[in-house]
Write a protein that binds this DNA or RNA. Sequence first.
DNA 1: TTTAATGTTATTATATTAGTTACAGTTTCG
DNA 2: CGAAACTGTAACTAATATAATAACATTAAA
Lengths: 150, 150
Amino acid sequence: MTSEFGVAVHALVFLSHRQTTHSSEELAQNICTNPARVRKIMSKLKKAGLIETKEGAEGGYSFVLAPEKVSLCEVAKAVGVRFVGVSWRSGDIHKKCMIASGMADIMDGIYNDLNRICLERIDNISILDIRRQIFAGKEEKENTPAPEWI
Amino acid sequence: MTSEFGVAVHALVFLSHRQTTHSSEELAQNICTNPARVRKIMSKLKKAGLIETKEGAEGGYSFVLAPEKVSLCEVAKAVGVRFVGVSWRSGDIHKKCMIASGMADIMDGIYNDLNRICLERIDNISILDIRRQIFAGKEEKENTPAPEWI
DNA sequence: TTTAATGTTATTATATTAGTTACAGTTTCG
DNA sequence: CGAAACTGTAACTAATATAATAACATTAAA
């Protein structure tokens, strides 16, 4: 499993909290990764309609939806993450033994099922929920000087 | 995620079906991997009490429990598989920004939760269930000549 | 028309996973 | 006893998956 889902959620929480446009460079600094990776992931979020982007000078990424309406399930689907699954398959479909030829598909079925219940589970967690969790009990530090959020 | 869980389930289904002792070489042939890997994984199953092993000539691995009593959850715990989780963490715990410093732990919490519900989900699937699924509607091919199961 | 941004591809580096080899220890059997 | 056939481990190599880097065409604002 890649961590694209984590990057996407992080970026959305950040953008929804700051409520202004931010460049891939700024997001990358906060997330601690590189701008190209951020752009790749954000372009998927744009295709899913979760963010707006603007090219050119003064451009960047912005979150325009209601953060309580965007669920982690939507984010997961947007980036195409697969929570449970392996590429390696045991046995061999061409063997005569029914176990050797059938196990891999059975395991895949189990992984698909687990993946599905994972998506269901995060369907009722919103971007706002995550934001609240992060700032729970602590001062929000709104309007902190620019370098503070790096 | 490694495929150790798949190898373990495959081996247990195979052993419970054939009901005799088999060497790591025979298991490896059926699973389509190498004997050393099989031995590494089987030693974990032994420590968990899911199989019995015998060293020396005529030794090998055997399944001695009731296959309907062994759940995939036990197997997962025995091999220590983690279904959901990533090693990469976004942000940096030392940054002042609460999002940058807090996101990784939040995501880890979500992954832990998803992992837990995955274990719960497979807790009521037994080795016998898998065996039945494999042979559902098809002839069991009991007592086939030796090379058949390779 | 320069500058600062996205969108995208190709390439490289790193980390994870599986495969291989080797060998010490154990048990059976001639 | 001693050879043969196993398990149990460890060390190393190969393959694959993931993240980082670099480059550049395109777009939009000043």
